[in-house]
């Protein structure tokens, strides 16, 4: 058993074009470290400093992880993780920070 991670188009350069990869971890942070070991460079696209990037959404079993513990959100075998970049923008020249 493993955890399936769905990878968005823009990050498939790190997964040889695969739409989904398997990874392991007890928490989201652990899962991302495991992803990084097999797909170097991916972690930096997901994490900035100590937190998830503001405009990257990660879901565990359809729940936005920001509501279930962020990087500390617990994971178990069989869970499904989906990574989706935010669809956002606008006339404002400076990106908002925080949420």
């Amino acid at each position: 058993m493993a955890i399936e991670v769905r990878i968005p188009t823009i990050l498939r350069t790190y997964t040889d074009g695969q739409k989904a990869v398997d990874a392991a971890g007890d928490t989201l942070a652990g899962l991302i470290d495991d992803l990084e070991s097999n797909h170097p460079g991916l972690k930096d696209r997901l994490i900035e400093g100590e937190d998830l990037r503001r405009f990257v959404n990660v879901y565990i079993n359809d729940e936005d992880v920001r509501f279930i513990g962020g990087l500390e959100a617990p994971l178990a075998d069989g869970d499904q993780v989906v990574v989706l970049p935010a669809v956002a923008g606008g006339a404002r020249d400076r990106m908002p920070t925080g949420r």
Partner: peptide, 18 residues
Amino acid sequence: AGSPTFYEFDSTELLQLY
């Protein structure tokens, strides 16, 4: 974002859409 200078899809609706 409900804003005249910014837009963002709601994260739950974004997941449903994809």
